[in-house]
Design a protein around this nucleic acid. Structure first.
Ligand SMILES: [Mn+2]
Ligand SMILES: [Mn+2]
Ligand SMILES: [Zn+2]
Ligand SMILES: [Zn+2]
Lengths: 142, 142
DNA sequence: TTGCTTTTGAAAATCACTTTCATTTATAAG
DNA sequence: CTTATAAATGAAAGTGATTTTCAAAAGCAA
């Protein structure tokens, strides 16, 4: 699926009339080979270890493009750092976050999604997106 | 319930060996007479109209104390501003946020809360707190 | 009152980004 | 290949929200 994402991004770049650059390729490779929920700082440092000349602003700008193209999703866990996770076409999940060790577990629950729709409907709301995060202590930390 | 909150805060202050000050009283009154989900900036401006000498840092510091004492809760809707809402002992609710006009609707749904527990349990997680926000278009804006 | 803390407010600092701008690079055209 | 042009880059400056610093002011117990 790495390949699929690279293609998807290439297509996005082309359609927008943007350019394919060395930096974008490097950042994409690094992002795709990183664990999920990586913070910009983390990714930047990882990048710098091999490419000491890559700019901070470029990393920020490129991650925004990834999100815009649909291959990544921006997430905020309230610790003041923006994180990016790999996004897959038509997939959705929410998160369990360990407040001790920082471990993040992804989950999907259709019943919850369904109830969210019902709640929204009852208030005449049309949901565009939502955020569900469960913070607590993971199994390992207990 | 304003009175109850004032008492609760007084007690908190006393137990912590902190001091009861004119500023804290003013800020508490102002907060309690404000609409829910007020941003720090909004509260600061409201305060300044009657108390032109109150410090920015004091407002920040005091709101943190409110949250710590349990009479307020800090919330982030992702617009870069921290907001505070009134918290009531043993009560909990989540939010519907209109992305057009900013209207915020509170809701409670025990079924969702129950399912959250089940999800957490299935992963060996013990929930401490959670965040559920549904973003979309409100009835009025449609 | 006194003595010891805590609190306050103004200003400076911090933190996570975002913008600016001169320079470099990608790509299209010739 | 050049060349032309528009986009991208990186370093540094700028932002905006929040936090810290620090000297002066205010609470409170004795
Ligand atoms: Mn969901
Ligand atoms: Mn809830
Ligand atoms: Zn853990
Ligand atoms: Zn609305």
């Amino acid at each position: 699926m790495k390949h699929a994402k690279k293609n998807k991004f290439r297509l996005f770049i082309a359609q927008k009339g943007l350019k394919s650059t060395r930096q974008r390729d490097i950042i994409l490779d690094c992002f795709l080979s990183s664990s999920r929920h990586i913070s910009i700082e983390e990714l930047y440092l990882k990048l710098r270890s091999k490419n000491p000349n890559i700019g901070y602003a470029t990393v920020y700008r490129t991650l925004k493009l990834f999100a815009e193209s649909g291959i990544a999703r921006e997430i905020q866990f309230g610790d003041g750092q923006t994180r990016y996770e790999h996004a897959n076409e038509g997939e959705h999940h929410d998160h369990l976050v360990c407040t001790r060790c920082g471990t993040i577990i992804e989950f999907e629950n259709q019943d919850i999604e369904q109830l969210q729709q019902e709640v929204a409907g009852a208030h005449g709301f049309q949901i565009e997106n939502h955020k569900l995060e469960l913070y607590g202590i993971c199994a390992k930390c207990r």
